[in-house]
Design a protein around this nucleic acid. Structure first.
Lengths: 205, 205, 205, 205
DNA sequence: AATGAATGAGCCTTCATTCAT
DNA sequence: CATGAATGAAGGCTCATTCAT
C-alpha cells in the first residue's frame, strides 16, 4: 500500500515537472505575453483544467519557474571558479558568475523582473517568497564571503555586496531594455569597471 | 472667430488633461493591471468611446502619461540646487535630484518601467519614443556636465554618468521591490555612499 | 474507455450542431446584420465565450452554415428525378432541382451570396473554400452530364452549363430583390423558357 | 432677399455634391467596408456631424450614390452606338452598353448589389426607390425598343429583355465573385454567345 | 488525474448618430 | 452651416478558472 502511494507521488512529481517544462518552454519562446494556461497545457499535452491538478494558479507556475531559475543562478555561481585562491579573485569570479548568468540569459532576467512586478499574492505565498529570497541571497553569498576574507568587517561586506548587486542589476536593466545604447556604453564593460574599482578599494584597505 | 477657436482648443486641452488625470489616478491606485479604458473612462466621467476623442489608443494614453512623468523628472532635477558653485556640489545635487524623485515617487518609477516593458508599438510611435528618450537623457545631462566641469574628458564623463545612473536604478529597483530589506540596507544611504566615492575619485583626478 | 470517448465525441458533435442550429435560426430571422456571436450564443443558451469551443471564429460558423446549405442543395438535386431516361428530361429535372431549391428557399440564396461577398479570409480557409466550391460544382454536374449525354462535346457542355447557371442565378437575384416585378415577369417562367430553348437547341443538334 | 435665398440653395447643392464626391471616392478606394461617415467627412473636409446637414443618414448617401451610378449607366448606354440602323445592331450595341459598363466598373456593380442587399428602409424612401427603378428601367429600354422594332410583340419584347438582363446579371455576378473561373469560362464571351443566339432567334422570326 | 465545456468578466475598439455651441 | 465631443450600443474575442463527468 505504502509503496504504491510513494510510486504515485513520484509519478505526480514527474508530471508536475512536465508541466513546468512546458511552461518554461512557452515562456522562453513567447515571453510573458504568450504564456497562457491554454498554451502551457497544450504544450504539456494536457487540457487547461488538468494544470490545476499540479498548480493552484497561473501565478503559482511562475513562482515555481522562478524557483527553478534561481536554482540555475546558484549553479552558475557555483560553476564560476576563481583563477587563484585570493579573495579578490574569488570576488571577481563569483560576481561575474551571477552577472554573466543574467547578461547572457535575458529570459531569466524577465522571470526575475516578473517576480517583482507581476506575481500576484496568490501565487507568491509567503513561504515561497522566503524560499526565493533565500535562494537569491545564497547566490550572492560567495561574493560577501570573499569581501569578508579580503578584510572587510561584516557590515562593510554586506554593504559593498548590496551595492555591487544593485550596480549589476541597474546595468542589466539598462541593457535589457536597450536604453544603454542611448548612453553608448556596454553593460559588461561597465560592470568590469565597477568591479576593478571595488577590488582596488579593497586592496588599499 | 479666432478667440472662439482658441477657447475651444483650450477647452479640448482641458478635457484631454482630465482624461489624463483619470488615467493617472487609475494607474496609481490599481497599477497597470486595473488600468483599462473602461476604468479610465468611468473615472473621467465618460463612456469608453469618448476616450478616443482624445487619444488614439490605450497605449497612447500611457505614452502621454510617461511624457508627463519625464517632465516632472526634469523639473525635479531643475529644482535641485547645489550648495555652492563647485562641480562636485552640482553633481551631487543633480544626482540626488533624479534619484530622490524616483525614490520618493514609486509610481513614477512604475511608469518608467512600463515604458520599457509594456508599451506596445502602436502607442509608442518612434517619434514619441525618441522624445521620451531625449527627455530622460536631458534629466541626466546636468550630472554629465558637472563631471566634465570637474575635469573628466567627454568619454569618461559619459561612462561615469551611465554608471551613476545604473547604480541608482539598481538601488531604486531593489528598494521598490522590497528586496533591499533582505540585505538590511537603505537605498538612499547606499546611493550617498556611491556618490561620495565618485566625488572622491573626481577630486583625486 | 473507447465507448466513453465515442459518447463524448457524439455529445460534442450534438452541441456543435446546436450552436449551428442557433446560428441558422438567427441568420434566418435577422439576416446577416443581426447575426452576431452574442446573439447566436444567447439563442443557443450559451455565453459568447462558449461558442469558441466549437468554432474558431464567427466566420467559421458561416462557413459551416454554408457547407450545410450546399449539402441541402445537393440533396435537392439528387431528389430531382427525370420523367424518363432521356438526357433532355434529366437536364430539365436537374436544372429545376437547383433552381427550385434556391427559388423556394431565399435564405439559402442569402447564404450563397454571403459566401461570395462576406466571408472573411479567416473563416474561409482555402481548404474550406475548395470544399465549398467543389460542393457547388457537384450540384451542377448532373446537368453537365446530361448535356454530354445529349451529344454536346466537353467544351460545349461546360459552356452551356455555365450559361444555364448564370441565367438562373440572374433570375434568382432579380426575383430575390423584387426587381423582377418591375419587368412584370416571373422568374420560374423565364427559367422554364430558357430551358425549353436550350432543350430545343440540343435536339436540333 | 429671394436672390440671396437662391444663391444659398445653389451653394448648399454645391456642397452636397462635394460630400457626394468624397463618398464616391471613399467607396471606390476602400469599398463598402471602409466607407464610414467619419471617413467620408474627413475626405470632404468636414466633421462627421456636418454630413447630416446634407444627408439624413448614411444610407441616404448610398441612395444618392446609386442614383448617380444609374445616371452613369444611362450615359454609357446612350454612348453605345450601333454599327448600322438594323434593330439587331441596335440591340447588340445597347446590350453591350449596359453589360460592358458593369463588367468594366466593378464598383458600380458593388453599388448596385448594395442597393439590393444593404440599403436600409431609412435610406431608401419609396420615392427614391421608384426613381432608381425608373432609371434602371430606362437604361434597358433601348434594348426593348430594338426588340420591338425587330418584330417581337410587346409581351415578347419585355420577356426577352428581362431574360437578357437576367443573363447578364448572372454572368456579372459570377465574374465579380471569381466563381466563373471555376467553370473555366469568360463572362464577356458567354454574353456575346447569348446575344448571338438571341439575334438568331429574332432573325428567324 | 484528467477532460473540456462553460462561465463570467473582461478586453480594446468602432460606429452612426445627436446636440449644445 | 458647422463643429466635435459624447453617447450608447455593439462588435469579435481572450482568459483564468471551475466543475460535472
Amino acid at each position: 500500500m505504502e509503496a504504491r502511494l510513494l510510486r504515485q507521488q513520484a509519478l505526480s512529481q514527474t508530471r508536475r515537472a512536465l508541466v513546468l517544462d512546458a511552461a518554461r518552454a512557452v515562456f522562453e519562446e513567447q515571453g510573458i505575453e504568450g504564456a497562457s494556461i491554454r498554451e502551457i497545457a497544450k504544450r504539456a499535452g494536457y487540457t487547461p483544467g488538468a494544470i490545476y491538478s499540479y498548480f493552484d494558479s497561473k501565478e503559482a507556475i511562475y513562482g515555481a519557474l522562478l524557483a527553478e531559475s534561481l536554482d540555475r543562478l546558484n549553479a552558475a555561481v557555483d560553476r564560476a571558479q576563481p583563477e587563484d585562491a585570493n579573495p579578490a579573485s574569488r570576488l571577481k569570479a563569483k560576481a561575474l558568475g551571477w552577472f554573466g548568468f543574467y547578461a547572457e540569459n535575458p529570459r531569466e532576467l524577465d522571470l526575475g523582473f516578473y517576480l517583482v512586478h507581476g506575481l500576484a499574492p496568490r501565487g507568491l505565498t509567503s513561504d515561497l517568497n522566503q524560499r526565493l529570497n533565500a535562494r537569491l541571497h545564497e547566490a550572492l553569498q560567495p561574493c560577501e564571503r570573499a569581501l569578508l576574507a579580503a578584510g572587510l568587517d561584516a557590515q562593510g561586506a554586506e554593504r559593498e555586496n548590496t551595492a555591487l548587486f544593485a550596480h549589476g542589476v541597474g546595468l542589466l536593466l539598462l541593457q535589457h531594455t536597450g536604453r544603454i545604447r542611448m548612453f553608448r556604453q556596454d553593460a559588461k564593460a561597465l560592470f568590469d569597471h565597477y568591479l576593478s574599482g571595488l577590488l582596488a578599494r579593497i586592496a588599499r584597505h
